[in-house]
Computed example of a mutant assay.
Amino acid sequence: MSDRLERSQAVIDPRYVQTMARYNSWQNNQSMPVLEAMSHDELTKDHGAFFGSLLATANHLLWGDILWMSRFDPSVQPPEVGGADSTGLHPTVMSWAADRFRLDGKIRFWADGLRAVDLIGDLTWYSVTEGRDMTTPISTAVIHFFNHQTHHRGQIHAMLTASGRKAPVSDLVFMPQDI
């Protein structure tokens, strides 16, 4: 099969995107009260994770979601800070939670409006990290978007567990159907 033909075919469909958008909301809605109950010192304690603390990791995850959504949906503005400053996006868990809640609604709205044809073709963007334009199939970019979320939520889960907190259920198969 030619590369051109493969790029014209989506490897995911809108139902996958909608399911993952629901999963993202469910996970964040479970994590918010746990994080909000923690002191600022607990939230900013370095746990030896890639971004150090719970708040820094949550900020980076939100930053990445804003960045990818700005590429998928022109109504979403890119983050005002670059990747090097992503961990400081919000100084408090309350401001993070408000922004997280708003963006999760936008992600759900975007996902619910997708058609199969929207997942076909390429996405091109300028990567500051790579210093060049990047092009990948849109469906691959969407898969990456959700995989990035899951990866960093796993880090948050591990930090919560290590700090003696009860981490939320994260298994996709246990997501309530009414979410």
Results as ranks from 00 to 15, higher is better:
residue 1 M to F: 11
residue 2 S to C: 10
residue 3 D to M: 15
residue 3 D to Y: 07
residue 4 R to T: 15
residue 7 R to Y: 15
residue 7 R to I: 14
residue 8 S to Q: 12
residue 9 Q to W: 12
residue 13 D to E: 12
residue 16 Y to N: 07
residue 16 Y to F: 12
residue 18 Q to I: 15
residue 20 M to V: 07
residue 26 W to H: 02
residue 26 W to T: 05
residue 31 S to Q: 13
residue 35 L to K: 00
residue 36 E to C: 12
residue 37 A to M: 03
residue 38 M to F: 09
residue 38 M to H: 01
residue 39 S to H: 00
residue 39 S to P: 01
residue 39 S to W: 00
residue 39 S to E: 03
residue 40 H to P: 04
residue 41 D to Q: 12
residue 42 E to T: 10
residue 44 T to P: 02
residue 46 D to Q: 05
residue 47 H to F: 06
residue 48 G to S: 09
residue 52 G to Y: 09
residue 53 S to N: 05
residue 55 L to I: 04
residue 58 A to K: 01
residue 58 A to Y: 14
residue 60 H to Y: 05
residue 62 L to R: 01
residue 63 W to Q: 03
residue 64 G to Q: 04
residue 67 L to Q: 06
residue 69 M to H: 02
residue 75 S to E: 10
residue 76 V to D: 13
residue 78 P to K: 08
residue 79 P to M: 08
residue 80 E to W: 10
residue 81 V to H: 00
residue 82 G to T: 12
residue 84 A to I: 13
residue 85 D to S: 05
residue 87 T to C: 09
residue 90 H to L: 02
residue 93 V to H: 00
residue 97 A to S: 03
residue 101 F to I: 12
residue 105 G to H: 02
residue 105 G to V: 10
residue 106 K to H: 08
residue 107 I to P: 00
residue 110 W to N: 02
residue 118 D to Q: 04
residue 118 D to A: 06
residue 119 L to C: 04
residue 120 I to E: 06
residue 122 D to E: 05
residue 125 W to C: 01
residue 125 W to R: 01
residue 128 V to S: 07
residue 129 T to I: 14
residue 136 T to H: 08
residue 138 I to T: 06
residue 138 I to S: 01
residue 144 H to G: 05
residue 146 F to R: 06
residue 146 F to D: 04
residue 147 N to E: 06
residue 151 H to K: 07
residue 152 H to I: 05
residue 153 R to W: 09
residue 153 R to M: 11
residue 155 Q to N: 02
residue 156 I to R: 03
residue 157 H to D: 12
residue 157 H to L: 14
residue 158 A to T: 13
residue 160 L to E: 03
residue 163 S to A: 13
residue 163 S to N: 05
residue 163 S to C: 10
residue 164 G to W: 02
residue 166 K to R: 13
residue 167 A to E: 10
residue 178 D to A: 14
